[in-house]
């Protein structure tokens, strides 16, 4: 009886370990400093996590489909620069700049998807190449200059980054709505099921008549869409951007997705878990700041947490703490 209890508790820990860790962390910090779950503080954390979070939603699709996307960081810089530039272009203005930027970013995603889905090239190298190529593209586009909106009071463009609706900051709203929507797509629709199948066993999926290439292609389209959305928030929040605004984000995004429990081998993970992963990173940073520590301490904490999380995960799967590597 007691043994069964221990087992079931162990099972919950293994399956929802990251959620449990999150709750423990939140409760602990709240006891230490009640300001931690103050509504303003919570919104503040989510708002500052929104850009990373929106990108992580798309990357979750890619990773569950069994691939990687390292190009999201430079794609973010690209979309932010492009939307700002077009905003300043009298022929476009904000109303046209946004759809135009989305179209261009989706083209980049389509290129990723074509190379990896249809031509079956290795996703790590392709998106690594795209990381570099898109960075070059952005620099060429901007001529190496930062982009700024000259007349900030004359535009409604800041609504995506700075606005709020119903008392909720717009970036938080976008993140929440997109997470809910993509969460349902992944969990409830035939397409979502196919993503899991393709990532879990691509050969078996093909043998079951699932168009593997198309599914992979679409995961990259979704990823690009999320990046474009994040780029919009970024550009709108700062009303200006550097060419390197997204640099290094690709690996932080991946860290959030892995922290949420998605396997790099594909076939497992959920949007909900990714959101938890993103929030953990956000709240750790916030908690450490409240504790008076500098922002970079979170990097070290994240390092330890990621490795512990993944280690715990595979240790429960193999039933042994230490690896069998001789």
């Amino acid at each position: 009886m007691a043994e069964a209890m221990v087992k079931s508790v162990g099972g919950v820990l293994a399956r929802q370990g990251i959620l449990v860790a999150f709750l423990v962390f939140m409760i602990g910090f709240t006891f230490w400093n009640p300001r931690f779950i103050d509504i303003d503080n919570v919104f503040g954390v989510i708002r500052s996590s929104a850009i990373l979070g929106v990108m992580a939603l798309g990357v979750t699709f890619v990773v569950i489909g069994g691939n990687l996307d390292l190009s999201v960081g430079s794609m973010l810089s690209f979309s932010a620069i492009v939307v700002l530039d077009l905003h300043e272009n009298p022929a476009f203005g904000p109303a046209l700049a946004i759809p135009a930027m989305f179209a261009m970013t989706l083209c980049l995603g389509a290129l990723n998807g074509f190379l990896i889905g249809y031509l079956r090239l290795n996703s790590l190298i392709v998106t690594l190449g795209m990381l570099s190529a898109i960075h070059g593209l952005t620099l060429t586009y901007s001529g190496g200059q930062n982009m700024d909106i000259a007349n900030q009071s004359a535009t409604w463009f800041d609504v995506f980054g700075r606005g709020s609706a119903l008392g909720i900051p717009v970036p938080v709203l976008i993140f929440a709505l997109l997470a809910a929507f993509l969460g349902i797509v992944l969990a409830k629709t035939p397409f979502g099921r196919k993503v899991y199948a393709v990532g879990g066993n691509g050969t078996a999926a093909t043998f079951s008549g699932i168009p593997r290439a198309r599914v992979v292609f679409l995961t990259y389209i979704i990823s690009a869409f999320c990046v474009a959305t994040a780029g919009l928030i970024q550009a709108s929040r700062t009303m200006g951007a550097q060419n390197t605004v997204g640099q290094g984000l690709e690996l932080e995004v991946l860290a959030a997705v892995i922290l949420g429990g998605a396997s790099l081998l594909g076939g497992s993970g959920t949007i909900f878990k990714t959101v938890i992963g993103v929030l953990i990173l956000g709240f750790i940073q916030n908690g450490l700041l409240l504790a008076g520590l500098e922002f970079y301490v979170q990097f070290v904490v994240t390092w330890v947490i990621i490795i512990l999380a993944v280690w715990l995960d595979i240790a429960t799967k193999r039933g042994k703490l230490w690896s069998p590597i001789a």
Binding site: Y196, A197, G200, N201, T203, A204, A205, F207, G267, S268
Partner: peptide, 8 residues
């Protein structure tokens, strides 16, 4: 390898 998605 071909028949099942073992994790599903």
């Amino acid at each position: 390898a071909q028949g099942l998605v073992l994790g599903m």
